[in-house]
Design a protein around this nucleic acid. Structure first.
Length: 490
RNA sequence: CGGGGUGUAGCGCAGCUCGGUAGCGCGCUACGUUCGGGACGUAGAGGUCGUGGGUUCGAAUCCCGCCACCCCGACCA
């Protein structure tokens, strides 16, 4: 029974939703806009967490945990921050339920109203800086380099599983420094950590850039980001790193004594990536047959499928396969040996393809006698029969090759869908076909707004590594010194 | 918040126009035959038809209300 998922070209968002369901990554929950991340999906997230967490530790950060609830008064201390988040906050007003008198169930106990309402964190700058005030006295306490893994809630009007859910999981780094320069360096460093993670682990090329004032984080002086291209040509912001200046230090009165005994406000950064990366991973590589996972993040890197008619045959095959599994595990490769007789091999082939397992081995009696094994790779959907000798090294190489190949494929796709446009006419025509549009912009919010209004495209970022080039703004004709990245975005 | 759609077995759906005691496919259970690209046979199990009310001898079906979810837009990571 070939139960194909909808194709990308037919209906991209249906393909995305159906793939998530069928690959057993996640499902919608009883609560609108929230998701249940299922074990297979969560194990991918755990792999992401592990890799990122190691990188944070290597760059000197420590994990801590701050509370889910934020006193309402905290949120109003930093003016632009409130403005950015006020519209999407969940508010706790009561602390008790009781049985309804008419027996219709439980109701909120009106007697149990909170003195001060609590906000479910949309992000934690405010609680964290209120703690930092007590933690920091002198330049000797700096830099303070903290990260937390947490859930946050942003009451979104329209949600999309993994990409924009009302509750999501993320990490948020919050650091404090004695100089602006050092804080800016931290901001850049963490952006580079994200870019490295995206490219080396997720096999997803990204553009590093600066956000325009319109797209900047509420409360930041500067926001850096990595932007990736999805297979429908839309942009996805995959991570952000903010230079907070002294904004939160001033709002929460976080001062320190400098070496020469002067009081000064500390300089801050914050940076985060979320379960949105799961959406990015799916949309960057997967195809009409299902998920395609980079080996470095695949929960199962190799699946082994025995082809047998009876228990004796399975036992024979297992005699060969079990030692192989041991060897693979010894070199750190995760293996699944699917001996279930509930489904036929063909069913299993399709199932593991749907789940994006990078390498599949199949061994039947024919192979057993010839000392061979059939090896198939998910990224290219090719297979060959090879000798069972030296398999471990072969698989190691193959996994590395697949990791590189899917990166290259994504990079090539991005290159083929990136266009330099020099007139607004060309811009409007090309934006309908999707992709990144490299165009000159006069640097004003008005122009950006107008283009967004007319074309739904936004400036994804001002690339950090772009060459300077004199030109004129496609919209206003005013002078511009470099091209910026325009795209329609998730 | 606007526009569209959907709620019937675990999942996907038909039945509703024209009211008569609920059906198909997948999945599930048992047994047998199968097993190198989503097998087949036989026998089973499984449903307050989203919810509240109304009309009627009788409602999944007709009428009124409510709720939930999905998709498309406006807001955002």
């Amino acid at each position: 029974m070939a139960k194909a998922i909808p194709s990308r070209s037919e209906n991209y968002s249906e393909w995305y939703n159906e793939l998530i369901k069928r690959a057993d990554l996640a499902e919608n929950s009883a609560v609108r806009g929230c998701m249940v991340i299922k074990p297979y999906g969560f194990s991918i997230w755990e792999k992401m967490q592990r890799a990122l967490d190691d990188m944070f530790k290597e760059t000197g950060h420590s994990n801590a945990y701050f509370p889910l609830f934020i006193p309402k008064s905290f949120l109003s201390k930093e003016a632009s921050h409130v403005e950015g988040f006020a519209k999407e906050c969940a508010v706790v007003t009561h602390y008790r339920l009781k049985n309804a008198e008419d027996g219709s169930g439980v109701i909120v106990d009106p007697e149990a109203k909170l003195e001060e309402e609590l906000i479910v964190r949309p992000t934690s700058e405010t609680v964290i800086w209120s703690s930092y005030k007590n933690w920091i006295q002198s330049y000797r306490d700096l830099p303070l380099l903290i990260n937390q893994w947490a859930n946050v809630v942003r009451w979104e009007m329209r949600t999309r599983i993994f990409l924009r859910t009302s509750e999501f999981l993320w990490q948020e780094g919050h650091t404090a420094h004695s100089t602006a320069k050092e804080a800016m360096e931290e901001t850049t460093q963490m952006l580079n950590v994200y870019a490295t993670f995206a490219e080396e682990w997720m096999a997803m090329p990204v553009i590093r850039g600066t956000k325009t004032a319109n797209e900047r984080f509420a409360g930041a002086d500067d926001t850096l980001c990595i932007e990736a291209m999805m297979q429908d040509g839309k942009a996805l912001q995959a991570g952000t790193s903010h230079f907070l200046g002294q904004n939160f230090a001033k709002a929460f009165d976080v001062k320190f004594l400098t070496k020469d005994n002067q009081q000064d406000y500390v300089w801050g950064t914050s940076w985060g990536v979320s379960t949105r990366l799961m959406g990015a991973l799916i949309m960057a590589h997967s195809d009409d047959d299902g998920l395609v996972l980079p080996p470095k993040l695949a929960p199962i890197q190799v699946v082994i499928i025995p082809i047998f008619r009876n228990d004796e045959q399975l036992a024979q095959l297992s005699e060969k396969i079990n030692p192989l599994i041991k060897e693979l595990k010894k070199v750190g490769i995760s293996v699944k040996y699917d001996t279930s007789d509930a489904n036929k091999p063909g069913w299993k082939f399709a199932e593991y393809e749907l789940r994006g397992v990078p390498v599949r081995l199949a061994m039947g009696m024919r192979d057993f006698e010839n000392n061979t094994v059939e090896i198939a790779r998910r990224d290219l959907k090719t297979k060959e029969t090879i000798s069972a000798d030296g398999l471990v090294a072969h698989i190691q190489n193959l996994l590395e090759e697949i990791q590189v190949n899917i990166y290259n494929k994504a990079a090539q796709f991005r290159q083929e869908h990136t266009f330099r446009v020099d007139t607004y006419e060309a811009f409007k025509e090309q934006i309908e076909k999707g992709g990144f549009l490299m165009a000159h912009w006069d640097g004003t919010s008005e122009t950006e707004e107008a283009i967004k209004e007319e074309t739904k495209a936004t400036i994804r970022c001002i690339p950090l590594d772009a060459e300077l080039e004199e030109g004129t703004c496609i919209y206003s004709g005013k002078p511009s010194k470099q091209r910026v990245v325009f795209a329609r975005a998730y």
